[in-house]
Simulated assay, not measured.
Amino acid sequence: MGSGKSTVGTVLARALGLDRLDADELFESAHGPIPDYFARHGEPAFRQAEEDVIGQAISRAEPCVLSLGGGAVLSALTRSRLAGSHVVYLTVDEAVALRRVGGGEGRPVLAGDPGRTWRRILSEREALYREVSDWTVDTTDRSADELAQTIIRLVREAETVSPTPGAVHP
């Protein structure tokens, strides 16, 4: 949370001339606001519905840039579906992340002590982020344009070695 997935994804898609999809936006189009769904149905139901939405986005025939929610990697099926795509793990300094998420407002998983919760969530998920990612890019103190250019360079370098069709997932 707060790494800039949506912002960088938007700039990256524009630079590549691809559609940009955001898993949270797709979820909300299908099911309504995430906090409301989370409160009514609980996290397990949310994660299942999120997995379905992401599966539909990944199965698109056209390449795209797909920004995933931070908890998407909790699904083994989603992790396996990401294989064969270019996946970028965006990292960020904790203080910057918390500033970007506005103290956790509208993010049910950050309720209570946002800093402690952010650290706990990162600790629980970091190995999964690294498992699915091809690259790790630190977004702290870098502009979205600079980050998009860095990701494009990484993907192009990889494509010259071993072309891989599919989506780019920041």
Rank of each mutant, 00 (worst) to 15 (best):
L122G: 11
A15P: 02
A49I: 12
V137P: 03
S85I: 00
R99D: 15
A158D: 13
G9K: 08
L74Y: 03
E159D: 13
L128D: 10
A95H: 10
V92L: 08
C64F: 00
T136N: 06
S133H: 05
F38I: 09
G70E: 06
D145C: 06
S80W: 04
R60S: 13
H41R: 14
R116D: 10
R14E: 15
L110D: 01
V8E: 00
F27S: 09
G106I: 02
A95K: 12
I152G: 09
G71H: 06
T164F: 00
Y129F: 12
P114L: 05
V137E: 08
E159W: 07
E105W: 00
V65P: 03
L110Q: 02
E25S: 07
V155W: 14
V92N: 07
S6F: 04
V161E: 14
T78Q: 03
G84M: 10
H41E: 14
P165D: 09
L147F: 03
W135K: 04
S29H: 10
Y37F: 15
R100L: 07
D24Q: 08
A111F: 03
Q149K: 11
T164S: 13
F38L: 10
D22G: 01
I34E: 00
Q56K: 12
R153W: 08
D134C: 11
A30Y: 01
T136W: 02
L66V: 07
G4C: 06
A30P: 04
D138L: 05
A167R: 12
S59V: 03
D113N: 13
L98A: 07
P170I: 07
F27I: 10
Q48A: 15
T78C: 12
H86N: 05
E146V: 07
F46Q: 11
G69E: 10
G70Q: 06
A97E: 01
A13K: 10
V155D: 12
F46H: 10
L128C: 07
S75D: 05
D145M: 11
G55T: 04
R119A: 14
V132W: 05
S123H: 13
L18P: 04
I151T: 06
D52H: 12
I54M: 05
S29F: 00
L82I: 03
R81T: 00
V65L: 08
P33R: 15
Y37M: 04
L122I: 08
A76E: 15
T139P: 04
V161T: 13
P108G: 01
D113L: 01
I54V: 15
G102R: 12
R81P: 01
M1P: 07
H41V: 04
S75F: 02
E124G: 01
A167C: 10
R116Q: 13
V53R: 12
P35T: 06
F46M: 11
L147G: 02
T150S: 11
A45V: 10
